[in-house]
Design a binder for these strands. Sequence first.
DNA 1: TTGTATGCGTTATCAT
DNA 2: ATGATAACGCATACAA
Lengths: 328, 328
Amino acid sequence: MATIEDVARLAGLSRTTVSRVINNHPYVSEEKRQTVRSAMEQLGYVPNSIAQRLRTQTNETVAVLIPRLSNPFFSHLVDAMEDIAALYRFQLIICQTKSGKEREILYLDWLKTRQIGGVIFASSENDWQDIKRYQQYGPILFCNEYPPGTEAPIIHLDQLQGGYMGTQHLIERGHTKIGYCYSGRQNTNIRDRFKGLKLALKDHGLSIKEDWIFKDAYDTKDGGRIYYEIMALKDRPTAVFTGSDEVALGIIAEARRNGTHVPKELAVLGFDDQPIAGLMDPGISTVYQPVKDIGKMAMELMIQLIRGGHPVQQITELPLHLIVRAST
Amino acid sequence: MATIEDVARLAGLSRTTVSRVINNHPYVSEEKRQTVRSAMEQLGYVPNSIAQRLRTQTNETVAVLIPRLSNPFFSHLVDAMEDIAALYRFQLIICQTKSGKEREILYLDWLKTRQIGGVIFASSENDWQDIKRYQQYGPILFCNEYPPGTEAPIIHLDQLQGGYMGTQHLIERGHTKIGYCYSGRQNTNIRDRFKGLKLALKDHGLSIKEDWIFKDAYDTKDGGRIYYEIMALKDRPTAVFTGSDEVALGIIAEARRNGTHVPKELAVLGFDDQPIAGLMDPGISTVYQPVKDIGKMAMELMIQLIRGGHPVQQITELPLHLIVRAST
DNA sequence: TTGTATGCGTTATCAT
DNA sequence: ATGATAACGCATACAA
């Protein structure tokens, strides 16, 4: 591998001049610039970026922490982030935490060892106090989810508004008895969404019964189970806010098998607008989350921070959109 | 940030001794080892990995080239790869090529600039001759797809066997007129799959008509279009090998809308076993690809290569599996 | 406009 | 068992 020294020797100039050409410095005569260029060409020289990083104390790589990539929400999020990273020639390191506290810290340590220049949390299990101390080693920001009390930039989706909007839609369709499903996990997003639902109910003089709240709702299988739980109730909801397209799908599929008409006998609202939502028959009404948008914004901000911008405790909130199909 | 020098000073020892402790070298007395340990602790010292990389000329980061992450096949592939990388404390850099030749080369240049230690191609648009020259900068291997003439380790799925197996299944179900869909792109995988189909037909004394081959089949929308193309034929196939669950889904959905019974009037075989395949009604019979397995194998091999193993021109081929549901 | 000297934080070589 | 010193490849303060 040719080094800057080799280029300098071949060009009959100093390393400094070569370095100046590499970094497009002014005060290099056009003549010498050409000499250096051709020497680099001739030797197939490219600067060693590891040496550059050591010297300049910069690191243009960003780690993104997500639970797992096989979750479409996160793969789409990272997709958008990588687009921006590539645009700025930044590297994107993927870190699957499997929702594990220790895994998160493991990756945060990479910030300490200078293996990465910054960290974007797309989900987080640790308390802010345990993450905070890593800020001294590089920028940290949150995209999508964040622990309570976070003192770092946050870009997220307005789950409260999403919960409100979805519920209002069901109310406008004439429903007064509305059920709700949520995964067992209790993060800020899920809590906010539920707050939105309750707020919308309250604003219309309605409320939710304890019986109409279904938990452990993760996938299609859970949806099937929940269908039966709903049907077993004496006083049952006429609409369900599922919080997940998979769960909605499960309920709808089971309803069809049992001859329960959707949406006449049971309206079902999904969440996320995953591809299946539009493909099902009936199509699933759902709440679309502009994932790509927050992904891009988060990466843009991170790059500015790594390049020397200073973090402000800003919270960016993007609204969700309602997509009405046949299931409501 | 504390450096090795700071630790040495505090411990009243030399940098060399501290370095020895860091790297678990023998010939360090237990006493001094403790002294160093507590000094490191006290200063919150961690070695600067950039400096380590420069000094040792090693780089434990792997770049994975894929078309795009939002394609579930690839997100599951990378998921598996990251599991292995994390196990060995390697970093995984995600590179979306958007199926662009230039993008691939752009990322390959990272190998040259020492930003990464090795490259795994999960798809590739460039010819082997254009990739070959980068081998001198670090290990390169192919997982899933590879250009003709590749002289590097290859781990892939036996598409020919998959094509054969799927076709044979349809034949066993009594079909003699079998249609075939493929995306416009012509890569080795798609070609091999088609070879498998023709081979199976030939082995049973059958053949395919030009009319029964449908191209530009990427997604559900295309499936819908293809349904009508099939129905418009005077002599039409009674079964279709779609090469994609999305396309299969599109055909099935359109068939249902038009009252065409699946599988009685038209049997449909998918490919990939994406989640939707099992959730649809009727469930889609499909060809499952052990994506996780090749992902893990590829990353294991890459890590061995980066750690100094020498690449052998080995080809690892994994078989596909048939999943029979209701659509055939 | 160009060059000299120094240091980024490590590890490896060679003494002792 | 421990330490002094050089080297990895580069960029920059300073000098000329």
